[in-house]
Write a protein that binds this DNA or RNA. Structure first.
Length: 875
RNA sequence: GCGGACGUGGCGAAAUCGGUAGACGCAGCAGACUUAAAAUCUGCCUCUCUCUGGGAGUACGGGUUCGAGUCCCGUCGUCCGCACCA
């Protein structure tokens, strides 16, 4: 009787309905079992899910289903990162309200995710654009404000003078606004900031505790925070000071090279530079030039180092009578250190470039280890490595480190104008987090500007500050700022007319605490419920893209600390385990006019070993290009909906887990999908073939003396089970997949070879094999597993059934086949019993024909027996 | 420029500790079944030689070791992050 092919479309819908009806993935906070929180980075509702989502959410779902089977109370929620610019762009282009656009996208994408059969607790779904979510965010903002974690400050922004709007760095292309094409200006605006730098040191040192994070991500964060230890040094003016201050303070990490100082360089925004420009039009013009310089990476890279001699001079701290000229330089940043540096051209590339250009002296003070002080001279480059200090008075002979210490000690105790001349300082590259956005579709910053009371937070009982529904998007600028009535409000303090803050928050704020909200999204009065948030967090396993390695993860770590400081949560680190998955990539195709062609329109043949692509429609030859990240611009995208409709969700899920290690990119190929689908059908066929023999049996139902064939199968089943457990625990899904293929191949062989009717130990063993197989594929291909489970007449749904137990006695073998090497090359194999001693094994090895031949009667120099592994005879 | 990761068949890869290199999948080749195709099944599938056997082989060149894909040094290449942070 022919077995009908597995109909994924029908079966998947059926099981999704059954799970939904029984509400099997709902999670209760009161459940007493041990908790496990698995979370994938929530999506931006762009319109449709893409293959990257399929991969990300498949991985998370495998973990969730596996942990559930292992007896954990699993929290596996989903939500929407729903504020952001694309919704506003859609409003401008298509005249559709951002809310309507966003919620329609959410509806589409929710249905797509449901078609994947993910084991999500949809009751906890949140959208960050919902007032139910952002009112809590506003509450926390005001709490942060009261704790001093929020402040306002003038900051430089990219300003588009045509659209009258602030642009994100990504919206500035070649120095011009992406929409208007206007040359972007740097403007100073009052902007809201989170004081993330309060936690610089903690965010840095706590990275060491995150041992279940990829080293790569931790390193990236470490570099981003950028701690450096140095010395602030005050140089006394020799010329009159333009500001009245008696000194200029610089920051350096190389105080050991002070004797090589040949200039000071100030930022264009340094107070001394500003003051000196008064009455010095040329310097004023130079400052102006510095301001016009773009902030983009490209602009910085090409910009040449330039300076302007202010004519001012300062005294060298150690060399009596020596003076140092003061420049303003375009490469010195005002917001790092003190906005001023000293230059030692002999030992720093940048200072070297500057000194060469302006013909300043270059005095070497660090001697390389193998150089002689009397003959040493620099070549055409600075010497930046370690060495011994010379040309430096009291530092001569010291190492670089010792000299740093000596300089610090001396300057700390030298008084200049009632303060020490030097002070040790730790600096961080990390800046405070600027969250102001002059946008409509974001969380309104809940502050009110009152002429009399200043900036006042909106009282808790007046939250949320709702976005107005009737904003207009047909003019440039911030819709909130130009709304006729929205911003006008009474001051909460004095009740006089005041105005609302019209900035909204960076959408990274929304995603910095959503994982906490999931723990009790039903709390109407507070952002979090302490009992829930403290027991669920930290997230046991967080899974997402490497592109969030720095910002999202760092901001979330900051938020956890800020929420702790304001009593909204009780822990520092939000994510105990982090996994960054690779991208989904695909070949690219182009027609003879150079236009990109989408994979769905292409057929591939192999002609004499060469792959040839043709247009499906008319057979036109298509050029096969490089493999790249799926992107709309290159059209190398595959639509998850089509894949699921054609092959089923299980096939797509299985493919995503196969072959490539999850942290690497996976190449999506049509033939690979076909292979995955073949496997789905193969399991279905096997189950149906075996069903008549085993459907009544539950468990191994062993006879007293099972046959060798039955025992071999049972051993393989339990070895596979143990290996798959291990693989899933370490998210090595590709290895688990390979083990499962092996098991299915073995079952296939047994069904073909064994005589089920006459070997009465076989039905039990085969039955057990299928039970285990279906349980271990359940996290990966849940619908197929359920359908097979029910075909075999098993009780209940697999989604809620317990993981099978490994029988440890079955995973150790009584006999082992060990490779035998002679002088490190494999020459034979030797089958020994597990109990055999080393000396017995050695004796057996010497009896082997090949070994005798090589030794020719002589005794071996050595025999190395590595237990359970290998034998090496050294002849 | 600085920092980091990686380099294994035609392709994706596997090889927890230094112990049989290439499991598993994809592609390909040959065959069976079929009127035929699809599906399915069987076998082959690193290179090479004087082929019932041997030799070489994990980017390249050295080293440590009884034994190296794995450890160390150097070279080349690819990818990623940061990029005037003093």
């Amino acid at each position: 009787m022919a077995i009908e092919r597995y109909n994924a479309r029908v079966a998947e819908r059926k099981w999704q309905d059954i799970w939904a009806e029984a509400d099997v993935f709902a999670t209760k906070n009161e459940d007493p079992r041990p908790k496990y929180y698995v979370l994938e980075m929530f999506p931006y509702p762009s319109g449709r899910i893409h293959m990257g989502h399929v991969r990300n959410y498949t991985m998370g779902d495998v973990v969730a289903r596996y942990k559930r089977a292992r007896g954990f109370n699993v929290l596996h929620p989903m939500g929407w990162d729903a504020f952001g610019l694309p919704a506003e762009n859609a409003a401008i282009q298509n005249k559709v309200h951002p809310a309507k656009w966003t919620y329609e996208n959410i509806a589409t994408m929710r249905a797509q995710l449901k078609s994947m059969g993910l084991s999500l607790d949809w009751a906890r779904e949140i959208a960050t654009c919902s007032p139910n979510y952002y009112k809590h965010q506003q509450k926390m903002f005001t709490d942060f404000f009261k704790k001093g974690l929020v402040y306002r400050r003038k900051s430089k922004v990219n300003w588009d003078p045509i659209d009258n709007t602030v642009l994100a760095n990504e919206q500035v292309i070649d120095g011009r606004g992406w929409r208007s094409g206007a040359i972007v200006e740097q403007r100073e605006l009052e902007q809201w900031n989170f004081r993330i730098t309060d936690y610089s040191e903690d965010l840095l040192t706590s990275l060491d505790t995150l041992d279940r994070w990829p080293d790569k991500v931790r390193l990236m964060q470490r570099n981003w925070i950028g701690r450096s230890e140095g010395l602030r040094v005050r140089f006394e003016f020799e010329t009159p000071s333009p500001t009245g201050e008696k000194t200029i303070e610089i920051f350096t990490t190389r105080p050991d090279t002070l004797f090589g100082a040949s200039f000071l360089a100030l930022s264009a925004d340094h107070p001394v530079a500003i003051a000196a420009a008064n009455g010095n039009p040329a310097l004023g013009a130079f400052r102006e030039k510095c301001h016009q310089m773009g902030t983009s990476a490209a602009a910085l890279e090409t910009a040449e180092k330039e300076g302007f001699d202010t004519g001012l001079t300062v005294k060298h701290p150690f060399i009596a009578g020596a003076t140092v000229p003061v420049y303003v330089a375009n490469f010195v940043l005002m917001d790092y250190g003190t906005g001023a540096i000293f230059g030692c051209p002999a030992h720093d590339q940048r200072d070297w470039d500057f000194a060469t250009k302006y013909k300043l002296s270059i005095i070497p003070v660090v001697l390389p280890p193998d150089a002689a002080a009397t003959t040493y001279s620099l070549g055409t480059a600075p010497y930046v490595d370690d060495g011994t200090i010379f040309n430096s008075d009291f530092l001569n002979g010291l190492t670089v480190d010792a000299a740093k210490e000596a300089v610090a000690k001396r300057l700390e105790t030298t008084m200049v104008d009632v303060a020490p001349q030097g002070a040790r300082q730790v600096n961080y590259r990390l800046r405070d987090w600027l969250i102001s956005r002059q946008r409509y579709w974001g969380c309104p910053i809940p502050m009110i500007h009152c002429d009399d009371c200043g900036v006042v937070p909106v009282p808790a009982d007046q939250l949320p500050v709702l976005l107005p529904d009737d904003a207009t998007f047909d003019a440039p600028g911030n819709p909130l700022a130009r709304h006729p009535t929205w911003k006008h409000v009474a001051c909460p303090n004095c009740n006089r007319p005041a105005t609302r803050e019209t900035d909204t928050m960076d959408t990274f704020v929304d995603s910095s605490w959503y994982f906490a909200r999931f723990t009790d999204p039903w709390n109407e009065t507070d952002p979090t419920t302490r009992s829930a948030v403290d027991s669920w967090l930290p997230v046991n396993q967080y899974i997402g893209g490497i592109e969030h390695a720095i910002l999202h993860l760092l901001y979330s770590r900051f938020f956890a600390r800020a929420m702790k400081a304001t009593g909204h949560a009780g822990l520092d680190e939000p994510f105990a385990g982090l996994f960054t998955q690779g991208m989904v990539v695909h070949e690219t195709y182009r027609d003879n006019t150079g236009q990109w062609v989408t994979p769905a329109d292409v057929v591939i043949d192999e002609i004499e070993g060469t792959r040839v692509a043709r247009l499906k429609a008319d057979g036109t030859k298509i050029e096969i290009g490089s493999i790249e990240k799926m992107s709309k611009s290159k059209k190398n995208v595959v639509d998850p909906d089509e894949i699921i409709a054609n092959w089923g969700a299980d096939t797509a899920r299985w493919f995503m887990l196969s072959d490539s290690p999850p942290d690497r990119d996976v190449i999506w190929t049509e033939s690979g999908v076909e292979g995955s689908h073949r496997f789905v059908q193969r399991i279905w066929r096997l189950v149906n073939e075996a069903a008549p023999f085993i459907s009544g049996i539950s468990g191994p139902a062993l006879v007293e003396t099972p046959t060798a064939a039955a025992m071999t199968l049972r051993k393989q089943v339990h070895k596979t089970l143990a290996a798959v457990e291990d693989d899933i625990e370490r998210l090595a899904f590709n290895r688990a997949v390979a083990r499962i293929y092996e098991l299915v191949n073995a079952i296939f062989k047994i069904l073909a070879d064994a005589d089920m009717a006459s070997d009465d130990s076989m039905p039990g063993a085969v039955s057990e094999a299928f039970d285990v197989l279906l349980q271990i594929i359940q996290p990966m291909m849940p619908h197929l597993a359920e359908e097979c489970w029910s075909t075999l007449g098993r009780d209940g749904v697999l989604a809620t059934s317990a993981w099978p137990l490994v029988d440890r006695s079955l995973i150790v073998d009584d006999t082992l086949t060990l490779p035998v090497q002679i002088n490190g090359k494999k020459r034979a194999e030797l089958t020994v019993s597990r109990q055999m001693s080393d000396s017995e094994i050695q004796a057996a090895v010497l009896e082997l024909e090949v070994v005798k031949q090589v030794l020719e009667g002589r005794p071996p120099k050595k025999i190395i027996v590595v237990p359970q592994r290998i034998i090496n005879v050294v002849a």
